[in-house]
Design a protein around this nucleic acid. Structure first.
Length: 300
DNA sequence: AAGACGAAAGTGGTTGA
DNA sequence: TCAACAACTTTCGTCTT
């Protein structure tokens, strides 16, 4: 992870922050975008506990885990077989029957095919990057192997694995967002998610407010400098113990609200609240707390 | 007229016995 | 499994810009 050692060429600060969503490294001090497209280096550039598992799962040729049969299945068309050669025709017919058998009998493959389609569908609604889709697919595979899907809806489990993948990739989405995109109620997604984490023994770090900030800022059409500053505020708030027990989206919203106001890019509490999926009241409460306990002007 | 503010009651999730 | 609890939401009246 060479980028962690990097200094900002502008101000020499070592405090750089990673915007996972847009694949950029941003200086925390001056907001300079140091490098971009780091996501293209591959989905596994972060060291998680489960990384080994995922890697081992993918040993072999670089096939996308999203293709349920790895794209190797072949269709034999019966129409192309002539009627003149009876034995050949019978032989091919048998072959085709076998194929059908394999496909339909293998409930696992069928389930995977459906699930991967669903994962793609949900992910595209939420505009998630490819590496998250693949991570989600990998989780689904593991879940299926451990028989976790039994008795649950495919959509519900798909929503849960995507929720988990987003978290792990550093671009968290809210449970309600997943539930809405998947057309499943939030409770079910939450239940599946907890089940997943427990059974796969995945260590999930609590969602950080700063992971929400780039996305919310972009949605509010705020310049990068505001986003960087909001991150700074959020980090400072955490130091002061203002984040414990508080929901990450609300904290992110408040930090953005303050930063935007400070940089003359004012957004109303309503706008910020809407993008963040919290109410104005929550934005207000968090921002009040931050403003009172944080010495904001010192940060500039 | 729109935004910000704060009180108060209601809701859903977590926790600990 | 149930009750207590904190965080968050909803609603609404009032103040500010």
């Amino acid at each position: 992870m060479a980028w962690q050692e990097e200094r900002c060429p502008e101000c020499g600060s070592e405090e750089v922050i990673v915007d996972h969503e847009r694949g950029e490294i941003i200086c925390q001090k001056c907001g300079l975008v140091i490098s971009s497209n780091i996501v293209d280096e591959g989905p596994e550039w972060r060291a998680f506990d489960h990384e080994q598992l995922v890697k081992r799962d993918r040993v072999g040729p670089p096939l996308s885990p999203v293709l349920y049969d790895e794209g190797l299945s072949t269709q034999i068309s019966i129409e192309k077989i002539g009627y003149e050669d009876a034995s050949k025709r019978r032989q091919l017919y048998r072959l085709r029957k076998w194929q059908r058998k394999i496909k339909t009998l293998d409930a696992t493959a069928k389930n995977l095919a459906l699930a991967f389609f669903e994962i793609r569908r949900i992910s595209s609604i939420l505009g998630l990057p490819e590496h998250v889709v693949e991570l989600a697919a990998t989780y689904y595979r593991q879940a299926l192997k451990k028989r976790l899907i039994k008795g649950r809806s495919i959509e519900g489990v798909c929503a849960a694995v995507i929720y988990l993948a987003c978290k792990e990739a550093g671009i968290p989405r809210k449970l309600s967002e997943l539930a809405e995109a998947a057309n499943v109620n939030r409770k079910e997604v939450g239940r599946n998610y907890r089940n997943l984490v427990r059974s796969l023994a995945i260590k999930v770090l609590p969602t950080r407010p700063i992971d929400f900030i780039p996305r919310f800022s972009a949605a509010l059409k705020l310049p990068g400098i505001v986003s960087s500053y909001a991150i700074k505020i959020a980090l400072r708030a955490r130091e002061k113990g203002l984040s414990s027990g508080r929901g990450a989206p609300g904290l992110a919203a408040a930090a953005i609200y303050i930063a935007a106001t400070l940089f003359g890019e004012r957004r109303t509490q309503k706008e910020v609240a809407q993008i963040s999926g919290v109410t104005e009241v929550t934005v207000r409460n968090r921002y009040k707390e931050m403003f009172n306990k944080l010495n904001i002007e010192v940060l500039v």
